[in-house]
């Protein structure tokens, strides 16, 4: 009797949540898979099934390729900056955790992660501005010629990587800090007695022991960087009389195909590709973790 009552309670409690979850997650995900095999222009009622035609078109769509390449460069660029810098900063902050400034260190690194994206991106847009920006002013003190940061095809991508890394770094540092706190103090003490320098114990103890954290941070950073959009939107935006330089990324291409070109099915197939990339990255992470455990 009591068991049945408990069973009933659990069912009644979880059903509404499950219903919402299904409606806002499961169904849309299923829908994106279905739409990717159809042709639909929003306005018309019929959505003919066209098999893999959307995906076949993706393979020869130059704009999509451009978006895919840009996004991948940005994602891996952010990764290369964020993860090493994140672990190094976390090690330093952890080392100075008793310092009276430790909460300043932590907070200052983390604040960019929580402030609104658009205002933060605007600050960077001004910094990078070729004419008025402080970056060129700063570089000119060293005799560097002013650069058109946001217009040069290579520099504009670097700008986006810098902006995204600035935002992602705090998260990486935070996770690493938690990781450092779990590492056994005695091991470091032993290493110190053996004459290891701080740098050596960082390299030979911390880095290997934090490998699972590094993998986690890498995947989270990569996945969120693959969805980059707001940063590009602000940095590349142009006013009527002052063209900007568009850096095409996947989410932008998707939204453009869907809501400007009225090709929802085609946009859905792009979303499926994005999903596949994320799944592969996650899979790689898990298999790397498993490798390590079996060793």
């Amino acid at each position: 009797m009591r068991i049945r009552k408990r069973w009933l309670f659990s069912l009644l409690a979880i059903l509404p949540v499950l219903a919402i979850f299904t409606y806002v997650r499961i169904i849309p995900i299923g829908e994106i898979l279905r739409l990717s095999l159809h042709k639909w222009d929003i306005l018309s009622r019929n959505k003919p099934f066209i098999g893999f035609a959307n995906f076949i078109e993706l393979t020869r769509d130059r704009l999509f390729h451009e978006a895919l390449i840009n996004t991948a460069i940005i994602a891996f660029g952010v990764l290369i900056i964020t993860v090493p810098l994140g672990i190094a900063l976390a090690a330093l902050i952890h080392h100075r955790v008793k310092s009276r400034f430790s909460s300043f260190y932590e907070t200052s690194v983390f604040i960019p992660h929580v402030v609104s994206l658009v205002p933060a991106a605007m600050a960077w847009k001004w910094i990078f501005d070729a004419r008025l920006g402080p970056l060129n002013a700063f570089l000119s003190m060293f005799g560097v010629q002013p650069q058109a940061w946001l217009f040069d095809p290579v520099l504009s991508i670097i700008c986006i990587i810098v902006l995204c890394s600035w935002q992602a770094l705090g998260y990486a540092v935070l996770i690493y800090l938690v990781g450092f706190k779990t590492l056994p103090e005695s091991l470091y003490e032993a290493a110190r007695l053996d004459g290891a320098t701080g740098l050596q114990s960082f390299w030979f103890l911390s880095v290997p022991m934090l490998k699972p954290i590094s993998l986690y941070v890498s995947v989270v950073t990569l996945v969120s960087a693959f969805n980059v959009y707001a940063q590009v939107y602000v940095l590349a935006s142009d006013a009527q009389g002052a063209p900007g330089r568009q850096v095409r990324v996947m989410v932008l291409d998707m939204l453009e195909n869907s809501f400007r070109n009225y090709r929802v099915g085609y946009a859905a197939s792009e979303a499926v590709v994005l999903l596949l990339i994320v799944l592969i990255l996650t899979y790689v992470q898990f298999s790397l973790l498993r490798d390590r455990r079996t060793k």
């Binding site: 070729a130 004419r131 217009f151 095809p153 009389g241 002052a242 063209p243 330089r245």
Partner: peptide, 13 residues
């Protein structure tokens, strides 16, 4: 050049 300020904005300046 591609990088130069362009259009109305550049003309006005």
């Amino acid at each position: 050049t591609v990088e130069m300020p362009a259009d109305a904005d550049a003309f006005e300046r």
